[in-house]
């Protein structure tokens, strides 16, 4: 690896084609909304939404690794950038969504409707 200075043009266009394809698949799924995916729930979210989120992470991986050239960086740089982000974001999302679900239950079972 290292900083190779030969042309990467081919790979760049390849990644562009891939990202475009993923976006087209996402939009198509979003418009068609296949019944089996849209109505089936996994961990209180529809399978379709899980597919969208996974495809988004795949796109993020390719943008970071190919376009931002993370694949050519040293592993200590990779880890010090990606590690904290992955950990903190997962943690934040976990606590906020669990709390939100609790508030939702409060609204459903009590007289409060939207005030807090």
């Amino acid at each position: 690896m290292g900083h190779s200075h030969e042309s990467n043009t081919k790979r760049i266009w390849g990644v562009f084609a891939f990202l475009s394809l993923v976006t087209i698949v996402e939009v198509a799924l979003g418009i068609v909304k296949p019944h089996s995916l849209y109505m089936t729930n996994l961990l209180s979210m529809s399978l379709l939404n899980w597919i969208f989120i996974i495809l988004t992470v795949v796109k993020a991986y390719y943008i970071t690794w190919a376009f931002m050239h993370m694949e050519g960086e040293k592993s200590n740089l990779r880890w010090s950038v990606v590690g904290p982000l992955v950990f903190l974001i997962l943690y934040l999302v976990f606590i906020l969504l669990v709390e939100a679900d609790y508030v939702f239950e409060v609204f459903r079972t009590s007289q409060y409707k939207w005030i807090f």
Binding site: I89, L92, V93, L96, L97, A100, V103, F104, F107, W114
Partner: peptide, 15 residues
């Protein structure tokens, strides 16, 4: 991430 997670919070509250 903070903004988007906050959006998720509100959305899950009023799911």
């Amino acid at each position: 991430s903070g903004f988007i997670a906050a959006y998720g919070f509100s959305r899950f509250k009023f799911i």
